[in-house]
Design a protein around this nucleic acid. Structure first.
Lengths: 113, 113
DNA sequence: ATTCTATATCCGCCTATCCGGATATAAGGA
DNA sequence: TCCTTATATCCGGATAGGCGGATATAGAAT
């Protein structure tokens, strides 16, 4: 169990790409190749951001075959819970709405499991 | 009216000193000389942090005599409202509890108005 | 065993940000 | 006017953090 520092949580979300990732995670598990596609970023960039979110203790990962699935670990942590609720409200706004549309579209063509 | 970017709000709170300032602001208005005393930091450092909070649109300032009083502008802004509620909960925790004790003590010796 | 796919990490480069002493500005009081 | 107090801004130096191509690792498929 990682001890979470509030300011590190805020720092994680202060980066626009990580904020987009956080909103995507409100939908549930997501893997790196999906994020790479949805965000249209190099894989190394995505993995680096996920490593940061994990080191802060905001996400956990699960290996499934070739894929690494990340998920938000908000349960029982006051700040992460509070933020998750707020992030859900961002789903309908730019640029998150478009991200979610691309995620759904991508999942129709490819399954990561 | 400043348009507030969520990630800039998070960036502002990602700095430990600014997080302490934000918690102090949940108590109401506060001026630079009070912050300098409570946080035990150089005045230029405090002013720099306040300028950042102001540029993000998280605080407003009011000139009263020689003093500049800052206040949280959370009203009507979803994220700032959400955060303010959370920040109130930090008052009783380290290092914020000690900050608030020093603020009360300082105000017994000096009035900024 | 070899190849392909998915992911993590390394690396050099570049920009952003922090620090705090020094200086500038501004208001009040003597 | 001159001095003191309060605050904002400037500056150079140091550190943190982002970028993405290249490389390493790991699992699955042939």
């Amino acid at each position: 169990m990682v001890i979470i520092n509030d300011h590190q949580v805020f720092k994680a979300l202060s980066e626009p790409i990580r904020l987009r990732i956080a909103v995507l995670l409100t939908e549930g598990e997501i893997c790196v190749c999906e994020l790479t596609e949805v965000l249209r970023l190099p894989q190394s960039t995505v993995s680096r951001h996920m490593a940061r979110l994990k080191s802060v203790g905001m996400v956990s990962d699960r290996r499934g075959g070739k894929w690494t699935h990340y998920r938000w670990v908000g349960q029982r942590h006051p700040l992460l819970d509070t933020l998750a609720t707020y992030l859900v409200g961002l789903r309908s706004k730019r640029p998150h709405k478009g991200d979610l549309i691309r995620l759904v579209r991508y999942r129709k063509t490819k399954r990561c499991e």
